[in-house]
Write a protein that binds this DNA or RNA. Structure first.
Length: 140
DNA sequence: AGCCTTTGACCAGCG
DNA sequence: TCGCTGGTCAAAGGC
């Protein structure tokens, strides 16, 4: 499969949006990190960061504030109020892909079905305050 | 037949 | 008070 030429997906090399608005809650999902190649045949194609959960796209919009496209995903589970937002540049998606997680999953991942942790609330144990996807402002 | 994906329009909140 | 942006819902089409 020579589709994904850039395995660097969740690497938001964009850092912060230099806007100054309210920060979003970004969490780093479980280990199951796959990449689903999405695209047409030729043209711009990028890999969507898969966290092992199932998402349903319910909207997409172009955020002019950051000059990026934003896709809105929602967890397939009604029991789960987890939401996911994916931002990417219309020209360099694989170079500026950013994933923002909102809320936490109240169920185990379908990929790891059968091996639930029991608690279930062990999903949102990350710092949803300043957790960035690799592109943290804490350049140090 | 069922489910998912895509686009548009509408609504709410904030400046 | 008006305008703008972001976010969500709904409907239609395609697989």
């Amino acid at each position: 499969m020579a589709s994904n030429s850039q395995p660097t997906t969740t690497t938001g090399a964009g850092g912060r949006n230099g806007h100054g608005d309210k920060e979003e809650a970004e969490q780093t999902p479980p280990p199951p990190e796959e990449a689903t190649t999405v695209g047409g045949g030729d043209g711009v194609q990028f890999v969507m960061p898969e966290d092992g959960y199932e998402w349903k796209k319910y909207g997409q919009k172009f955020i002019k504030n950051i000059q990026k496209n934003r896709s809105y995903f929602r967890c397939r589970e009604q029991r789960c109020g987890a939401k996911k937002k994916v931002e990417w540049h219309p020209h360099d998606p694989s170079l500026n892909l950013r994933v923002v997680y909102d809320g936490a999953h109240q169920h185990g991942s379908p990929s790891a079905a059968g091996e639930e942790g029991g608690g279930g609330a062990t999903a949102n144990q990350y710092d949803l305050s300043t957790q960035y996807f690799g592109g943290g402002p804490r350049s140090h």
